[in-house]
Design a protein around this nucleic acid. Structure first.
Lengths: 147, 147
DNA sequence: CACGCTATGTCAGAATGCTGACATGGAGCA
DNA sequence: TGCTCCATGTCAGCATTCTGACATAGCGTG
């Protein structure tokens, strides 16, 4: 017995997911504004902090944006002296990106702010519930075509 | 004992949430493309299906976009004859929007496609897990400033 | 070796969304 | 009544992102 439309949107997992995502996005924007960082810029720094030497294309995939968008992000961050890219590729066309000292400092500050946002957002859930939530969400991306 | 940065991003609830959101968005785009509908347009139809007579501003809030963006969405959908807005407001400035017959038909088709996407996306989870996931996510938005 | 295939970086144009601003209509209050 | 305050609809300008396209570098296979 299927219903005609989605029905009460609050009962749709997708809609609630979008709600939480929107809240997180807004909160992150506010938290990063004092640092003059956008969310994609922060994501880029965080990815490079965890995995130095990533290429533009790889960063784009992991940050869920196009190569072109990430290219602008990298250029902007490079102008600000937060990261470095070699003038020519050591292998293939990929230019491995590295954080500068300033970049690492900025990352630490931004990361603290973002972790505070996450902590606040998921505070209604117990530690066990948060872990379970992460597991459940991870299970959904596992079967996703992108990976 | 707190770590310096977020650390392994796969262990961050926020990052995994963003992953799932990106997957859902992509899948919805593909599912709605044959109908020549964007995700915000579909969201608008779905909201009006559930609650006829919503104003532009109210639709914007519930679809997580600005009034200006929703205004363009409404204009486009009105041009296509999927919804109607009175020429002048019956009360205040708010223009109550209603789906047309074509709009309701389009909504039914789109809704079926989107529900298929959701079903596929969350298929790794059991029915109980999906309900629990929705509950947990809902708990997070409950304390959010936006409501 | 030559060819096709894939991936990467980048340029240009279009689409989409947002910020700032303004006028209007209604509610609340002195 | 007159004033303030707030919400709504809408216009203009800007920022960000995406789509399409192209050249280049490596890799595999014949």
């Amino acid at each position: 017995m299927e219903q005609e439309t989605v029905g009460d949107l609050e009962l749709s997992v997708g809609y609630v997911l979008k709600q939480v995502h929107a809240s997180m996005r807004t909160a992150m924007d506010e938290a990063l504004r004092p640092l003059d960082l956008t969310v994609p810029q922060y994501a880029c720094l965080e990815l490079l902090g965890q995995t130095p030497g990533l290429s533009n294309a790889e960063l784009a995939r992991r940050a869920f944006v196009t190569r072109q968008s990430m290219n602008l992000v990298l250029r902007r961050l490079q102008e600000r002296g937060l990261l470095t890219r070699p003038d020519q590729a050591p292998h293939g066309r990929a230019l491995p990106t590295e954080l500068t000292r300033d970049g690492r400092t900025m990352l630490r500050t931004a990361s603290v702010a973002v972790r505070a946002v996450e902590k606040q957002l998921f505070s209604p859930l117990s530690r066990e519930q948060q872990l379970r939530l992460r597991e459940d969400l991870a299970a959904c991306v596992a079967t996703s075509p992108t990976s």
